[in-house]
Design a protein around this nucleic acid. Structure first.
Lengths: 331, 331
DNA sequence: AACATTTGCGAAATCATTTGCGAAAACGTT
DNA sequence: AACGTTTTCGCAAATGATTTCGCAAATGTT
């Protein structure tokens, strides 16, 4: 248990002032090359590491970004986080990740924690029923840019980066149309969530206007288990749908379980298409065709927006990441 | 962009010294009740929040734990992290999560980052080929307890908390025996990883000694895709195995894909059993039977060990979390 | 009344680093 | 030689909170 090396110690050993050591280490032009060399050498030997807290205290900034998500066990967020980390690293920042569970109280604590530790910027995907903006406002007031992503608040004047829900749903609808499906089963998540509503309306509208004779049955399923139960029921009926649309990975996994239960063949017995980040679809054979909503791409966009805010962008902006179709042979 | 409130500001407004304000806020007996009341009131109104960096600078401790994992997109780690967070919160600590990707360089950076930010303790699951202990030693030398979990180094004198690899493999072998399997296919991960070796030897030994007439075929697969390819090949052969053991989720997902490819029925055509944390197995119908290795339980154990180390436990210890069988109907 | 103890609070040091300003030395210019 | 300029570096303040020490007044003890 040896104490960490400090500038003071180096300065004592070299018989020069602390200030000079500090400047030498950061290649300040005021310092001569020889002095720099000596300082760097000793610092190397004693492996000096600057005290992050002293620096943050001085600069009032921590060179780290905060990411707050409902939960990290989610492939979409994982990719988002990966993208942010990748970019952050390039700029010499690090990233801390905080989970809010489904507890608004915890989300609050997380925000406060980020503010206390003076993060440089904050990326937030809020919890379903989180509506209180005061805590976020406070954060922005103290000079920390906040970028909302994926689950963004309805509140208008804030920076948002989200996936193209409508577009992804439209892509899926198009596939249904092109494949000439006549009886489509579409399963959506909790109808209280705006994401479900927007995907549903986009999907149904596109299908109805381009294939008016196609029958659409919609089901709501709040989790994988519900999707499993309800899909199984729907698939058992005499008039089995010839195409199934799953608006999320959770729903897709439930549907696939139902399909296995009934020993149906894909895509001959029924076709399947989903909106997904890509992990779940490739677990099956044939792999599931999906409209991709890439957390990675979203992360890159969010980071770019963050940089703009840090550079002093004053206005707020809503950015939408486009979706692409990934063919897997399931429809 | 208003600057945060400081003790100084409060002291100025109240016409008392900074020291008194500080003590009043932490209920120091030296301070009179009236003074305390006044201070607390003003602090409340101005919503004063102590500067975390100043405190950490003084105390050389950050009241936060670091968790370093290869990647967070892993249900095992998610549960581990959840457990640590839950416990940490109870004790007034927070948690920062860092990913190493599969890059040893990044693992190093992560460790350094934790040391720089003077985390109270560090939980680490190392990368496959990480063997250099000097960085960890340095961390412990500076007074930060390090608890290894799951993927632990072979190095002896360090604190480790791991799942009962052998036991889980033995449980799976027992199921094979009880079901009277005669031709078992067992798929293991990268043979360079100790986890693969220990699971393999435990599984094979148990099976051989209790069911000497059972044929065992072992395959190595370093990822899901390899498991898929090789399992498909093995399952196509005339003499199809009647039981498959998958040592991990990754392998299981590849095997299941092969099974779907060949349209085999589970468990009638062949049985499947895995070692898993539980997420992947319940994606299929029938759900896959597995020997559970619980990240959550492991997290609780790791935290307890951490507390012991912080309290001054000097010796090192290796703790094993037991595994239980979860029946899913796949064998 | 003389002394001891308790109460309530402030001054100043401390943590490690950064930085504006000043100072001394070295150098160049006329 | 006198002056201006550049180079190189140190002093000291500042960041925000904690904590040791000590002071003065109030209270208690004999």
């Amino acid at each position: 248990m040896k104490a960490p090396v400090t500038l003071k110690q180096l300065s004592l050993l070299l018989n020069i002032s602390i200030a000079t050591v500090s400047r030498a280490l950061k290649d300040h032009p005021d310092i001569s090359v020889e002095t720099k060399k000596k300082v760097r050498e000793l610092a190397g030997i004693m492996d000096y590491e600057p005290n992050a807290y002293a620096i943050s205290l001085k600069t009032n900034n921590s060179k780290e970004f905060g990411i707050i998500v409902p939960e990290i066990s989610n492939y979409f967020y994982n990719y988002f986080i990966a993208a942010i980390e990748e970019e952050a690293r390039r700029y010499g920042y690090s990233v801390i990740i905080l989970q809010s569970g489904n507890d608004p109280q915890q989300e609050l604590e997380n925000i406060r924690r980020c503010r206390k530790s003076r993060v440089t910027g904050l990326f937030v995907s809020t919890i379903t029923d989180s509506v209180d903006m005061t805590e976020f406002k406070k954060t922005e007031d103290s000079g920390i840019p906040v970028i909302f992503f994926d689950k963004v608040p309805a509140y208008n004047s804030c920076n948002k980066v989200c996936v193209a829900d409508e577009q992804a749903a439209t892509i899926a609808a198009h596939v249904m149309i092109n494949k000439g499906k006549k009886d489509v089963l579409a399963i959506f998540g909790d109808s209280n969530m705006s994401i479900s509503a927007s995907r549903k309306s986009a999907f149904c509208e596109e299908l109805r206007s381009n294939a008016p004779d196609c029958k659409i049955t919609t089901i709501e399923a709040r989790n994988s288990e519900e999707a499993y139960q309800r899909a199984a029921k729907a698939l058992k009926s005499k008039k089995r749908p010839d195409g199934i649309f799953c608006m999320s990975d959770e729903i897709l996994s439930g549907v696939m379980k139902a399909i296995q239960l009934l020993k149906l063949n894909i895509p001959s017995d029924t076709g399947v298409i989903a909106i997904s980040n890509g992990f779940i679809p490739q677990l099956y054979y044939p792999e599931i065709t999906y409209a991709e909503t890439s957390g990675f791409k979203l992360g890159k966009l969010a980071f770019a927006r963050m940089m703009a805010c840090m550079a002093g962008s004053t206005f707020t902006q809503t950015i939408i990441a486009e979706s692409v179709l990934v063919n897997g042979g399931s429809i």
